[in-house]
Nucleic acid binder design. Structure first.
Lengths: 117, 117
DNA sequence: GCGAAACTTCGACATATATCGAAATATAGC
DNA sequence: GCTATATTTCGATATATGTCGAAGTTTCGC
């Protein structure tokens, strides 16, 4: 628990989880994570991995809806976007991923109980 | 990405994240995780850690609202509840936590990029 | 059996979300 | 400048969510 007793921290974490709590956005985010992994297909900055259009490729949603979801992810702090010509490139926000990892570490104690079973 | 390309798996993960994506529910869940950790304050089954009332202690919400949130967490598969006398005891669902951990492992590749910075 | 304690269910309400299509904006290439 | 491509903004709409208070359900202890 520790730092998540802090209200702003808790709220921010909840906002990130909420943003990921939609199949389309989770899918978009995972694809981005996938693109960023192992230095593959990353742009010049190594931080930007795919453009908005690529992320919604097989999602079967309107461009405006895709744009909306990307905006939600950005506002939650999960991704960063940067215009590059016609394209708008997206990348995972590393700080955000680190925070999510910290949050999930809270659960480590629970596995211990599981092991005890 | 791997298993999260699978639609049911993705949807289930999104449902869990969505359930955690509200400050009150995240708070409730973290408290439960906290209670389960290190074998502290756990009930007879070792799986049930706190009753509904305890979980909403300093949340300042109506009992009916608390009940609603607990139900959401249960329906998302994150917690289990069991009546014990007047109390309804709650416990973290270990399977769910394991799934969340698996999901977060998808992010491990991204840290590698971070380290490269 | 009665009253209190701990929850849940119900009904109402305000607000937020997901979605689309149409129109607007930005950029590249000719 | 004109056109095509990529993306965003806007307005509309349907549905979902968070919240409460009032009433109902279970169970305990007397």
């Amino acid at each position: 628990m520790s730092k998540f007793r802090n209200k702003p921290t808790l709220d921010r974490a909840a906002a990130m989880l909420k943003a990921l709590g939609h199949p389309h956005r989770l899918s978009i985010f995972l694809r981005l994570v996938d693109c960023c992994g192992a230095g593959r297909c990353c742009g010049t900055e190594a931080e930007y991995a795919a453009c908005v259009g690529d992320l919604g490729a097989d999602l079967d949603i309107a461009p405006s809806t895709l744009s909306h979801h990307v905006k939600e992810l950005r506002q939650a702090g999960l991704i960063r976007v940067e215009r590059n010509g016609q394209r708008v490139e997206c990348g995972v926000d590393l700080q955000a991923v680190a925070e999510l990892r910290t949050l999930l570490h809270q659960f480590d104690g629970v596995s211990a109980v599981a092991a005890k079973d």
